[in-house]
Design a protein around this nucleic acid. Sequence first.
DNA 1: ATTTATTTTTAGACAAAACTAAAAATAAAA
DNA 2: TTTTATTTTTAGTTTTGTCTAAAAATAAAT
Lengths: 217, 217
Amino acid sequence: MFSLSEENYLKAILHLQKTSKSGVSTNAIAEEMQTKASSVTDMVKKLSEKDLVIYKKYQGVYLSDTGRKTALQIVRKHRLWEVFLVDKLSFSWDEVHEVAEQLEHIKSDKLITELDKFLEFPKRDPHGDPIPDAKGNFHVANKTLLSNLSKGERGTLVGVKDTSTEFLKYLDKNNIALGKTIEVLDKEEFDESMLIQTGGKTLRISPMVTVNIFIKQ
Amino acid sequence: MFSLSEENYLKAILHLQKTSKSGVSTNAIAEEMQTKASSVTDMVKKLSEKDLVIYKKYQGVYLSDTGRKTALQIVRKHRLWEVFLVDKLSFSWDEVHEVAEQLEHIKSDKLITELDKFLEFPKRDPHGDPIPDAKGNFHVANKTLLSNLSKGERGTLVGVKDTSTEFLKYLDKNNIALGKTIEVLDKEEFDESMLIQTGGKTLRISPMVTVNIFIKQ
DNA sequence: ATTTATTTTTAGACAAAACTAAAAATAAAA
DNA sequence: TTTTATTTTTAGTTTTGTCTAAAAATAAAT
Ligand SMILES: [Mn+2]
Ligand SMILES: [Mn+2]
Ligand SMILES: [Mn+2]
Ligand SMILES: [Mn+2]
């Protein structure tokens, strides 16, 4: 259907449009895809030809309905494979992304239907992100950043914003994990750092950490 | 490491060199890969540059040690994925090939190690073909074609030579399956057709069938 | 409202992997 | 052993996706 490259562009645009009211800029896509702006312009023209995006010169790019649907199916595959790797093949959550980046491009409807069934229809991936269903629908959790909590408040860790290996390994090292309760024992006004309690331990974390953890209260 | 195309060429050459004492010809590769001879020459030069094959103009091509090793790892991945699809995702043996052709190119050592473990180190794929281990070693079964059996002889079906969907579906339809016992009730001299008994049924099969079934006596 | 800076697009080039058409080498036939 | 047929290689294109460098458009600053 679509090339590996086209699929990656669609996914990148889907990701970027969540954090911008207007169209997604050429430079933003280039940054996200680790490529050059001129390459982005070329590809965006091609996607526009195929009616996967709406594009007017210098005006940024928007996903069309089919473009959005296609992108959501790639995301679905990516996240289902991540669940597979963690639940069945004992990967840790910081090891799955690279492999899922490859697996998400395998073309087979039956494969993904059966994988979903085999995994017992998971609703979230190992990082807490929702898994779209076959029609592209998914449940958006009402979550907030840990940085928004005040002293004395508590909640459950339901997701991470930064999914880099470095960050995830840092969390592992400090016993901070998905599903665990976090309580804000203290919040330093000066640097916005927090003293938290989780997994039976008390530790101080910097704002770089608190703005990358999603909490459900 | 190697491109998808390079990997497919190596696999094709590995496959072809089993049935030819001398070097594998350009035309044979072209036929196997559904491409043109000129394309093969180009790629063979490239593989030769990378020391994956030994190639002298007009003399055919041979796999080098690293070429053979690489090809065997692709075969290993292909067959492990086929086992996964049949054993875990309820694919039938005639549906797996196309998907395995894609999955065999996923690059991750951990993935294949863990998959092997998850499947409990299978020795053969759903078509009875041996699965090379991480070092490229595999067990060659002493099997013979059903067509070589005489009236009265029997054996177990341990493999198929033709793995096309059409052939496999024909076998399914007639209750002929891997692991089942087959007894030759009669052999017609004139057209080499056979009357066989398997799965509690008696049926007559043509030589097109008998030369594509491997038996262990 | 100009000037300056930034972003985006165009123009031209390149590498990978395929193709067609023609030339060269090898194999088969006369 | 010539002649003919087949196989293989070369030469020149094409497509996809990328790049650099330069031009054009938009945004920011004076
Ligand atoms: Mn991921
Ligand atoms: Mn994820
Ligand atoms: Mn196969
Ligand atoms: Mn097989």
